[in-house]
Design a protein around this nucleic acid. Structure first.
Lengths: 203, 203
DNA sequence: AGCTTAACCTACCGATCGTTCGCTAAATGC
DNA sequence: GCATTTAGCGAACGATCGGTAGGTTAAGCT
């Protein structure tokens, strides 16, 4: 039925698997993604699927990597041209929240969901999630310090506290969108970010 | 090995099952709770466990009910004596965050975790989670309106926006505690609530 | 052309999943 | 005291889990 594939097509198959796993995990959770389900959806055998990764955990880590990469491209890269500090940060959170509301490609939702799913299960997946979130927090903190240097934020402010509260806004947006399907969530999140950073956002 | 039980002891067994399921679900997720695991931990047979509920979904709903009841007792009931408005609300969020940080009985964490776990899976469990969170949001909104009437909050404020942001603070606390094990999380959450409600909390 | 590599298949493994069955025996109702 | 109810057990069910073995076939190198 299916002819053998060349090396480059093999990489394409691997990508297809990871992308399907990403979509499935967004609704079913990363642990809920099943080799058999992936195989069925992609029209291939379980062995063909798992052969690309070796173990399910490796597949989960690959899916996570893909999600982190998606997030980077969708959020961080998009605001690289915006002036550093509060403006860049406000735009970044705006992009993040927008990506959650999009039907496809809600990497923010994905990472947030997986973070909650694995927060109580030690192991490589949890470690990878932690690393990704820490990297994001470091990015936010870095921009905040730049904002302080630029005089956009008071020097006596607590950067860690702001990171905490900004993260809370994103989490609230995630829950409002995923659970309540509240169409006002992005606007609410934007308003909260504006209040925290003291900047108006011109999208 | 195990003698037969009377009707009241049967109810006690049911409670034991639900409590164990609650503990397991807090770390493994509600879907990750297994009849076999419950049976093993409680020293009984799988049939004996499932016999009290009929289906796993019914067990999940019972566990959820138990968690909601726990939350009510731990948070809402405890602040019933506090003057209504911002003071009661600040104390309520303080209790919630404290309950997350406690080793035992983190119902806040439980409901938050399950909300994320089932936000993409339609069904009775999702519906029950939604009802519980909606009930909590209604409580918060009600206290906020009382605060406006008392003159503690400006009349032109957006109650829905405040509910959104307060919820975000709790979610941030949950993630900081569960994932980062950050001991500063409760203090950060308290500070954020104070800033949102404009009240000092005297615990 | 010949050889190696590897992508993918079918078929199967042991384990575990939720659930059902028939049974025993204690508690309860009359 | 006798009949009914029911909590819980042991055993088994079909399905599915992640993973493996071995074979087939195409791609790529020499």
């Amino acid at each position: 039925m299916s002819p053998r594939k060349s090396a480059v097509e093999s990489a394409a198959t691997r990508t297809r698997i990871v992308e399907r796993a990403f979509d499935l995990a967004t609704s079913e959770g990363l642990e809920g993604v099943t080799i058999g389900r992936l195989a069925f959806d992609l029209g291939m055998s379980k062995a063909g699927v798992i052969g690309h990764f070796g173990t399910k955990e490796a597949l989960q880590l690959a899916t996570l990597d893909s999600a982190v990469e998606r997030f980077r491209r969708r959020v961080v890269d998009r605001v690289a041209g915006v002036p550093a500090g509060t403006r860049r940060l406000a735009r970044a959170f705006g992009e993040w929240v927008d990506s959650m509301a999009d039907a496809e490609g809600h990497a923010g939702c994905f990472l947030t969901s997986v973070a909650t799913e694995f927060d109580g299960r030690p192991g490589p997946v949890r470690d990878a999630v932690l690393a990704a979130l820490s990297s994001w927090s470091a990015y936010v903190a870095s921009e905040l310090r730049t904002a302080v240097e630029l005089g956009e934020l008071p020097v006596d402010g607590d950067v860690g506290q702001l990171v905490f509260e900004l993260n809370g806004v994103a989490l609230a947006a995630h829950q409002s969108i995923q659970l309540h399907h509240d169409p006002e969530a992005p606007a609410r999140a934007r308003r909260a970010v504006v209040r925290l950073l003291g900047v108006e956002v011109a999208d």
